[in-house]
Design a protein around this nucleic acid. Structure first.
Length: 877
RNA sequence: GGACGAUUAGCUCAGCUGGUAGAGCAUUCGCUUGACGUGCGAAGGGUCACAGGUUCGAGUCCUGUAUCGUCCACCA
């Protein structure tokens, strides 16, 4: 048998194993009419840099699911890819350029895009390399990029399609504008932060009433340059007489109307509101109702433009100071209040966002949202955990039109051409060469690109070949599970759902598995600026990919944030090593070349097999519920507690003994249980398990493609299991006593039991034999004479005398089993109650009723077993 | 303003459909010649945030309160 090193060394294994899988096409998603498909599309990481811990978790969860399904016999496809990440990438490349003293304008659009493509090449490859180190079993041949030819075609198709349906339009609206990135942002791309600020109360003289002013409050005084009105509430008695009058806008000396609108809150401030329709969404609405002039006074860089009079050219914050000063000098500054303000900031650069009127492209959301709401309400797409359904529905039900144009260069350029002759807008699937209305050649293409999420929204079907009608699309769509963090439910998940519903007429996935964020040890978000990020690759380097993966999926519940502790990684590395050494032990003792169960099973064999059988079922159930953490924990406990700490110990004397049948039997069971357990563990720790599996006798080529263990009723040995538990508690009792009496472990305590009881034991349960197996004690009968002295006396040569009852703690054991019995009985009664309930029988689906019947039968059997155990114990006690 | 989550051992967190509290790390004690010291055996440590309610029985279900956190909306 192969010699394995004493300590598991992930580095020498992982690369080798991964290449083996790739070389043998183990990750390939192959259309097979005999099999059911199982598809996961990977949330494409941004090309902006390298993967962080969040990506590692995301990838681990998906890989676990896909490996599980692959082993269950599905045609599993995990489709990877990378996102071009519009703003984010463009900013990165511009930063790079700045170091060379250049801006994108110096290069021009074409040259600049070449630079970005270079960047994409470099970082895209790096990301793939990192994912491979994590063990991601993606079908790399199908890897996609959101700006590759196919995706571009899909984007173009959807844009034109929606435009033709009237669901995409161009219009002037107040949008969120980032003066730093110099582009429009969608609502979702704005992050609000509470910042301390001020409320300036300004006095506008009322025209024709000398000495009378309206006092308006504002947090952005610089916008007053663009004011075109003042509004009061129509029910506000204080200002009834002002309605219809005008006031004089200071500095600009513009006469502006005072209008009445319900929008104004009488309670807040003075009850008078200055109206700047070009720079505030609410003012815009009011302005529309009252035909107020729209005067945009800030340019794209956040500076005052030519309509700002003498302040032209000043930055918005400089202008603010200057304007406040001037108003103060004019005696028109009533007061300044402290006021905490909720300021919108750009999610990329975190500069304050400026609401600005601008002509942009929008997706009309209401009609699209309807179906997206329906599929979730009717459960065609389910969120796990369920609570995110509310988050989703809330957003979707209140969704506003989606601003999709961005003033960037990196992205899908909008397929719209403007005619210089007739002004017609041509929107076309192919690049237009003439105006479709007047056929003029004098057309120019819209400079803007689409929001990066526009292409991400099509990800589940564009990656499968849409808009072509491919076989892949037919076979693998809709996909099954989408795994992602809650932070992009709005950005991405919601948009994929309505896009899938609209273009494919089918929701893109039946389950959305939401996970939390990975935070640092103090609960802070990992970020570059804080420098508290932990690099997954460093963890892999130190502890191995398997350990990192196991760490990331255990110890937290779905949808909740987790704190990352290096110590936990270490603990998982130790677990990997434990398995490694247990396997080493098994292999050292192996003289068989086929892994199968023996005919004759000892009590402990049945115990471990029966336990394994149940664990396999529990693991499967939890995997199917997406409770991956619980599933992993169960495998962990089984391996460490049951297999290593008990079963291996119990087989040691058999393996070294002379009884060949028993010896081979032990080998076979050790080997079989280990092999099957490796399967359960494989999705979580793919490298380690495959490496060991390859070294064990096996059928088939790879663990990764072996068959997932299924529950087998033949392996259900409830009776033996219960007996074995009894023996184990006795062994524990010996250990405790030995420890209390300070018996050196080199000495094997000699255990004397009362003569008449020895027989009872041997005939009842093979208790003594097992104790001897476990090398715990030597057992012999005591003479009736010294039986009385046996109470916990100990001699110098480490002979242990103890009464039987204490050893087994019969009373305690009976109590324990009684409790279990009681619980089983209650459960049994409850289920029986259900089963005699006519309503339940009539209404519940057949499978549920059958499942309940099965449960009842099992419980009944368990009750019988437990009753028998108690009888046995009572005979002894 | 609305919604959601958290509150359990010194720390980080599990705990499914209600049945005498669990893990990892940390602490203390005891164990080394054969799978593993990246190990083994033990021990200490918790009125499960608080107050009510349902129940034979509540960490678990219901109501309310407090503290922390997140998201959404937003009044100039």
């Amino acid at each position: 048998m192969k010699e394995l090193p004493k300590v598991y060394d992930p580095k020498s294994v992982e690369k080798k194993i991964y290449d083996m899988w790739v070389d043998n096409g183990c990750f390939k998603g192959v259309r097979d009419p005999e099999k059911k498909p199982f598809t996961i599309v990977m949330p494409p990481p941004n090309v902006t840099g390298q993967l962080h811990m969040g990506h590692a978790m995301d990838a681990a969860l998906q890989d676990i699911l896909i490996r599980f399904k692959r082993m269950q016999g599905y045609a599993a496809l995990w489709l990877p890819g990378v996102d071009h990440a519009g703003i984010a990438t463009q900013i990165k490349v511009e930063e790079e350029l700045r170091k060379e003293g250049l801006t994108r304008y110096d290069l021009g659009r074409e040259k600049f895009l070449e630079r970005v493509w270079d960047w994409k090449q470099k970082y895209g490859d790096r990301i793939v390399e990192q994912q491979k180190q994590l063990g991601a079993s993606c079908d790399w041949d199908r890897a996609r990029f959101t700006m590759d030819e196919g995706c571009s075609k899909a984007v173009r198709e959807v844009f034109v399609n929606l435009y033709e349906k009237g669901l995409i339009y161009k219009g002037s609206r107040i949008i969120n504008w980032c003066p730093h990135c110099v582009t429009a942002l969608s609502d979702a791309e704005v992050e609000y932060q509470d910042k301390p600020g001020h409320l300036w109360h300004l006095k506008y003289p009322v025209v024709g009433e000398d000495g009378r002013y309206v006092i308006v409050a504002t947090s952005r005084p610089e916008t007053m340059l663009g004011d075109s009105g003042v509004a009061v509430n129509p029910n506000d008695e204080r200002y009834q007489d002002l309605i219809g009058k005008t006031c004089m806008l200071p500095i600009m000396n513009r006469e502006i109307p005072i209008v009445a609108d319900e929008y104004v809150d009488m309670e807040f401030g003075t009850g008078c509101v200055k109206m700047t329709p070009a720079h505030d969404p609410n003012d815009f609405e009011v302005g529309m109702r009252h035909n107020l002039e729209i005067i945009r006074v800030l340019d794209d860089n956040g500076k005052v433009n030519e309509l700002g009079g003498k302040y032209q050219g000043l930055d918005r914050y400089e202008a603010r100071k200057a304007i406040v000063n001037e108003l103060d000098e004019m005696g028109l500054l009533e007061k300044i209040e402290e006021h905490a303000h909720n300021v919108g900031t750009c999610y990329r650069c975190h500069n304050d966002v400026e609401p600005i009127i601008s002509a942009q492209w929008f997706v009309k959301m209401k009609p699209l949202a309807e179906e997206a709401i329906r599929v979730v309400k009717e459960g065609e797409t389910k969120f796990v955990p369920e609570r995110f359904t509310t988050t989703y529905l809330n957003w979707m039900e209140n969704v506003r039109d989606w601003c999709i144009s961005r003033q960037l260069w990196w992205g899908h350029q909008i397929p719209a051409w403007y005619c210089a002759e007739c002004g017609h807008v041509t929107v076309s699937r192919d690049d237009a060469t003439e105006c479709e209305k007047c056929h003029s050649k004098n057309i120019t293409r819209d400079e803007d690109v689409l929001d990066t999420w526009f292409s991400s929204a099509l990800w589940p079907f564009e990656t499968l070949g849409w808009p072509e009608n491919t076989e892949d699309l037919d076979y693998f769509y809709p996909t099954d599970v989408l795994v992602t963090g809650y932070d992009i439910i709005f950005f991405w998940v919601a948009r994929m759902i309505f896009s899938g519903c609209e273009q494919m007429k089918k929701t893109p996935f039946h389950t959305v598995l939401i996970h939390g964020l990975v935070r640092d040890g103090k609960g802070r978000k990992m970020s570059k600026s804080l420098g508290n990020g932990i690099d997954p690759l460093e963890m892999i380097d130190q502890f191995g990919s398997d350990a990192l993966r196991f760490n990331l999926v255990t110890g937290n519940s779905p949808g909740n944030d987790m704190r990352f502790y290096t110590e936990r990684c270490e603990a998982m590395r130790n677990f990997a090593n434990k398995i490694w050494n247990a396997s080493r032990f098994v292999m050292m003792n192996l003289s068989i070349d086929k892994c199968e169960l023996p005919e004759k099973l000892e009590a402990e064999d049945k115990w471990i097999i029966s336990k394994f059988n149940r664990v396999a079922q529990e693991v499967t159930e939890n995997m199917e519920k997406y409770e991956l953490g619980i599933a992993a924990q169960k495998v962990y406990d089984f391996i460490w507690d049951a297999y290593c700490d008990w079963y291996i110990e119990l087989t040691k004397t058999r393996l070294q003994g002379d009884d060949d049948e028993s010896k081979i039997g032990a080998q076979k069971v050790l080997c079989w249980v280990l092999t099957e357990t490796l399967k359960l563990l494989h999705p979580f720790m793919p490298f380690l398990t495959e490496e060991i599996w390859q070294a064990l006798p096996h059928e088939g080529d790879f663990l990764i493609t072996s068959a997932w263990p299924v529950y087998n009723p033949e392996y259900d040995f409830a009776q033996e299991e219960a007996e074995m538990e009894c023996i184990m508690s006795a062994i524990s009792a010996v250990r405790t006593i030995r420890s209390e009496k300070n018996v050196p472990p080199s000495k094997k305590p000699h255990l004397y039991v009362e003569t008449d009881k020895v027989e009872a034991f041997e005939s009842g349960i093979p208790f003594l034999k097992k104790l001897a197996y476990a090398s715990e004690v030597t057992v012999s009968a005591a003479t009736p004479e010294n039986a009385g002295e046996m109470v916990a006396a100990i001699t110098t040569d480490a002979k242990l005398y103890m009464p039987l009852a204490e050893l087994l703690d019969v009373a305690k054991e009976i109590e324990r089993i009684n409790k279990e019995l009681k619980k089983a009985q209650t459960d049994y009664d409850r289920i029986n109650g259900k089963l005699s309930n006519e309503g339940f029988l009539a209404k519940a689906p057949e499978q549920v009723v059958a499942a309940e019947r099965e449960k009842a039968a099992k419980l009944n059997a368990l009750i019988e077993n437990l009753t028998q155990s108690i009888k046995n114990l009572e005979a002894i006690g």
